[in-house]
Each structure stands twice: as structure tokens, then as C-alpha cells.
């Protein structure tokens, strides 16, 4: 590999010159894509400011910036309660996901033990069954254990998602083994290795996982719908579903609710995304 790259060597000055057009090209391409990516999102947010009739017209900007939809959702529905429930479940689940998925992912790559591959395949296999089919057995279990209509009941299916385990496993796999062996010599126990050496090195992946776990639970619909029986246990997506009925759909309220529901997700994204970049830069290469 190294020899091949060597052959294609070019003088340093020329390389620095070439960096500039690349950067310009990157900005141009990204700017072009921006429209496609952000337009529907903006449309959704702007629609939240239009009334029940204007929302179906084609003007991009609202003729009048109406706050009536937000007011109706905030004061005439259980929105605050839905919001609280969703937040509680999403935060608790995300914490569980970050801890357990990284622990399992770490164990499956960094530790050697009989049955490692089998356990990995078994966990991965749980990804291959659509959750739509699991709601019936889950509900039977929940009824037996009294989990119906409880936060634990809403949260349990998402506590250790297999995709998170898989993600962390793949990222731990990229780490050099020597590092852990060296620390092991120092007499740190295995949990210490995971906690003090493994985790800091996969911070970008943890940040990504945190974003996905939060969004996944924030948007979960079918199971929270089935397990929550009373109105005060409804989560946001379940609440939003109440706006569509037999004789029509209140799109202006759906859009207003969604526009408000997106705020915590954006906050989570901005908080975590910093770590996607900073993780390794701090710990890895400055030494």
C-alpha cells in the first residue's frame, strides 16, 4: 500500500495549490444539495404558521404569520403532557442505549470468549423481525407483568437496540488492539478498560448513537400507542395521530405539533454532533 502511494508522489507546492479548488467544489456541491435537503423541512415549519385553509395553497411564505395553531395545540390539547412523556422516555432510553450498546459492542470485539460469534448473530437476528409483529407477544408479556400503561412499558423494547450494539461493535473493531493490551499490563480491570480507554476512543460513534437513539424513541409510534391506555400516557406521535380522523385531517395542527416536536431533536443533534468531530481529535492524535 505504502509503496504504491509513494510512486504517485507529487511536489508539495502543487498539492497545496490543488486543495483550493477541492474546497470550492465541496462548498458548491453542498450548497446545491442544501435546497433539496432543507426545502421540505422548511415547508413543514412554515406550514405550521398557516391556517387550515392556507396550508393547502402553494405560497411558500405564510401570508400572515399565525400563532393560532401553536396556541390551539399548546392550550387545547394535551401537548405538554405528550411532550413530557416523550422526553422522559427518550432521555431514559438514550441513556440506557449509550451504556448497554457500547458495553455489549465492546465485549463482542475486545474480549475473547466461547460463543462470541453466536451471541453476535443472535443479537443481530433480532433486527430482522419487524417490530410490527412483536407487539402482540410484547403486549401479552406486559399484561402478565403489569407493565401496561407505564413508562417502563413504553420504554422497554428500545432499551438495548441491536443496531446500537452492531454500530458500537463496528467502531470498536477499528481500534488498535495494542492499546488495550498495554493498559491491561497496567493492571486495570476489564470494566476500567472499557470505561476509561474504550469509550473515549469511540466518542464520535457514541455521539451518533445518542442522536439515533433519541430520535428513534422520540418518533416511535406503534408500540407506545398500544401500551398507553390512558390519555396521560400518550407520547407525541400518538397525540399527533389524534389529529387525523374519519372525516378529514387537521394538517395545520399536525404541522404545528411537529414543528414544536422537532426542537428537542435539534438541540440533541447540536449537542451531540460536536462530539462527532471532536472525539478523536482530542484523545487520539495530539499525543
Amino acid at each position: 500500500m505504502a509503496t504504491r502511494t509513494q510512486r504517485r508522489s507529487a511536489p508539495r507546492s502543487q498539492r497545496r495549490f490543488r486543495m483550493r479548488p477541492t474546497t470550492i467544489l465541496a462548498y458548491t456541491l453542498l450548497a446545491l444539495g442544501t435546497t433539496v435537503m432543507v426545502f421540505p423541512f422548511l415547508w413543514m415549519v412554515l406550514s405550521a404558521f398557516k391556517d387550515a385553509r392556507e396550508i393547502f395553497r402553494f405560497n411558500f411564505w405564510p401570508t400572515q404569520w399565525m400563532l393560532a395553531n401553536f396556541r390551539e395545540v399548546l392550550f387545547d390539547t394535551d401537548f405538554p403532557r405528550w411532550f413530557f412523556n416523550s422526553l422522559l422516555v427518550a432521555v431514559a432510553t438514550t441513556a440506557s442505549v449509550l451504556f448497554f450498546c457500547s458495553l455489549v459492542g465492546y465485549t463482542l470485539t475486545r474480549l475473547r470468549f466461547p460463543g462470541r460469534t453466536l451471541i453476535f448473530i443472535l443479537i443481530l437476528a433480532t433486527l430482522m423481525i419487524p417490530t410490527e409483529m412483536l407487539v402482540i407477544p410484547w403486549f401479552v408479556i406486559s399484561a402478565d407483568f403489569g407493565w401496561v400503561n407505564s413508562y417502563w412499558g413504553i420504554a422497554f423494547p428500545g432499551l438495548i437496540p441491536a443496531f446500537g450494539v452492531f454500530l458500537m461493535r463496528q467502531f470498536f473493531e477499528t481500534l488498535p488492539r495494542d492499546l488495550f493490551d498495554a493498559a491491561r499490563v497496567d493492571g486495570i480491570n476489564e470494566f476500567g478498560l472499557f470505561w476509561y480507554i474504550g469509550l473515549p476512543l469511540v466518542r464520535p460513534a457514541l455521539a451518533a448513537l445518542g442522536i439515533f437513539a433519541f430520535i428513534g424513541n422520540w418518533n416511535a409510534f406503534l408500540w407506545p400507542l398500544i401500551i398507553a391506555k390512558s390519555p396521560d400516557m400518550r407520547t407525541l406521535p400518538v397525540g399527533v395521530a389524534l389529529f387525523s380522523g374519519e372525516a378529514g385531517t387537521a394538517w395545520h395542527l399536525i404541522m404545528a405539533t411537529n414543528a414544536m416536536a422537532i426542537v428537542p431533536v435539534l438541540i440533541v443533534f447540536f449537542v451531540f454532533q460536536r462530539h462527532i468531530i471532536e472525539g478523536i481529535v482530542l484523545t487520539g492524535t495530539k499525543g
Binding site: I136, F139, L222, L225, P231, A241
Partner: peptide
Amino acid sequence: QETFPYDAYQQQVAASLPAGE
């Protein structure tokens, strides 16, 4: 009385009754 979103009403019934709920 308990009520559920129109679009998912049958799902709710389908999942609850087999558990005796």
C-alpha cells in the same frame, strides 16, 4: 371510556384482547 387514534384503532384492539386486556 378509553379512546384511541382513528388510524390505529384496529391495531389497538388486535393487540389488547389476546392478552385479556
